[in-house]
Simulated scan of single mutants.
Amino acid sequence: MTAAETGTSYVPGPAEPLPHQLLSALAQHRMATTSQLHALLRPGAARQTVSAPLNKLRRTGLVDYTVLPQSNRTRAWYLTGEGARLTRDLPALRGRPPYPISSATAASLKTPHTLTAVRTHLAFAADARRLGHEHGPWDWTPEVAHPIGEGERLVADAVMHYTAVDGEHRRKLRAFVEVDRTTMSSERLAVKLIDYARLFHYEAQPVGRRKPPPTGPAWLRWYPVFPRVIFVLTGASRTRLNHRMNDLQAMVTHHPLVAALAHEVPLGAAILEDLEHHTPSGSVWTPLTGGQPHPWTAL
Rank of each mutant, 00 (worst) to 15 (best):
V232E: 00
I101C: 04
P213D: 11
P142Y: 10
V225G: 10
R221K: 12
G235A: 08
D195I: 00
A158T: 07
I101E: 08
R174W: 07
R170I: 04
G136Y: 00
W222H: 10
R119S: 05
A175Y: 02
Y223W: 15
W138N: 14
R238P: 06
F176W: 12
T114C: 09
T120I: 02
A107P: 13
L193V: 07
I148P: 14
A117E: 07
R130V: 06
A190G: 07
I230F: 09
L122E: 01
F231H: 10
A126I: 03
F124W: 03
T105W: 07
E152H: 14
A125G: 14
W138H: 13
S185V: 03
V118H: 08
V225W: 00
R209W: 14
G167K: 04
V179A: 04
A107D: 15
K172D: 07
V232S: 00
G149R: 12
T111H: 11
W140G: 03
R188G: 05
G216Y: 10
L131Q: 15
H113Q: 08
A128L: 04
T183R: 14
R221Q: 14
G151Q: 08
P147R: 12
A175K: 06
K110I: 06
V144G: 06
S102A: 15
R130D: 13
W222A: 13
R153M: 11
R228G: 12
T141P: 03
D166T: 01
E203T: 06
A128D: 01
A158D: 07
A236T: 02
G132P: 01
R170C: 09
Y223Q: 08
G235D: 13
L193I: 08
D157P: 08
H121D: 01
R210F: 03
R188I: 02
D157K: 09
A126L: 07
V159I: 13
D166H: 05
G208Q: 02
D180G: 10
Y202I: 04
Y196L: 09
H135Q: 11
A164W: 03
Y202P: 05
A104R: 14
P212R: 06
A175P: 05
R153Y: 15
P206R: 03
V144T: 14
H133C: 06
R210D: 05
L189F: 05
E152V: 06
P137A: 12
L199F: 14
L220S: 05
P142G: 05
A104P: 10
E187M: 04
L154E: 13
